[in-house]
Design a protein around this nucleic acid. Sequence first.
DNA 1: GGAAATGATTAGCC
DNA 2: GGCTAATCATTTCC
Length: 378
Amino acid sequence: MMEEQARIMQALSGVTLAGHSVQGGMGLPPPHGHEGTDGDGRKQDIGDILHQIMTITDQSLDEAQAKKHGLNCHRMKPALFSVLCEIKEKTGLSIRGAQEQDPPDPQLMRLDNMLLAEGVSGPEKGGGSAAAAAAAAAAGGGADSSIEHSDYRAKLTQIRQIYHTELEKYEQACNEFTTHVMNLLREQSRTRPISPKEIERMVGIIHRKFSSIQMQLKQSTCEAVMILRSRFLDARRKRRNFSKQATEILNEYFYSHLSNPYPSEEAKEELAKKCSITVSQVSNWFGNKRIRYKKNIGKFQEEANLYAAKTAVTATHAVAAAIHNSQANSPTTPNSGFQMKDEEFQLDSAESKNSLLTNMFTAGGYHTPCYQSDGRIQ
DNA sequence: GGAAATGATTAGCC
DNA sequence: GGCTAATCATTTCC
């Protein structure tokens, strides 16, 4: 009985994956200690070794499989196998697995959260449009910013695509490798003691290895997003002057509301719309304008006059149109008396407006916007 | 190239 | 939160 067990043990230890029994089966000479002492002897030894190797190579797989099958079918094999499993269990080889339930990695959680927030991972919501919109608002509205916005989104979409492609590749590779290793271990479990727990542990190790690769991918993706974001936000400093038309609209409003140059939220929105800029840009503009005007009224006088004249012309046109309409609608109204030359009216109203504005910003003038003690215009 | 103009940012105030 | 005042950074003008 004991003799038989020993024979099986020897056979099992000599069986390799391919099913070839190398040392015990083929009877190769030991590597040291039996070499020939002369040259001819050595040649003979090498020749023998080569011959034996050739024998191994020539040996059919079927034969090896048959041997292996023979061992597996041996009546003592299950008993011996369970004993070996028991011994292995006792040595604590499979205990480690229980301690490898790691808590979620905070670094990984941070990366996941960031990728989710930026719209790289998770369901596609326009490729981080919220971040892009926020950045676009800071960078300034208008056509240019919408170009930058779409540029940002396009680049983010690119990053997203690369990320998902790579992630898919990793997952596929992980699954393939896991399946391969599991099959290998299951196959080997027929010839050596491998418990299901051990296979599970091995799968866990593989998954952890692939997770670390995935983390690197996530880290790289986050870095790419950060670089893209910082580049995009840096564009804020590269300001562009507003269009002439926009500046005119803002100035017109400013000088026509000189006594109270604080547009309401609605007015700001309207101006923003007209000027193709953001509301915050309108606020910035008025903030700058108020302070610069206040600091140097004299310098802005000419500009004030110009816009006052413009406003007057616009108002005149509106009045003229109204009169024209009323005349058209009431044929009894006499035509004479209200027909003024635009040029004359422009001059008159410009002059009157000029004096009005001059008065507004000189001490004692009726419309002088009184600056409060803190400098605010009343 | 330097000065002036201009849009944006920031700290502090209310 | 909106405003002022100071300042920065960039663009425009000469």
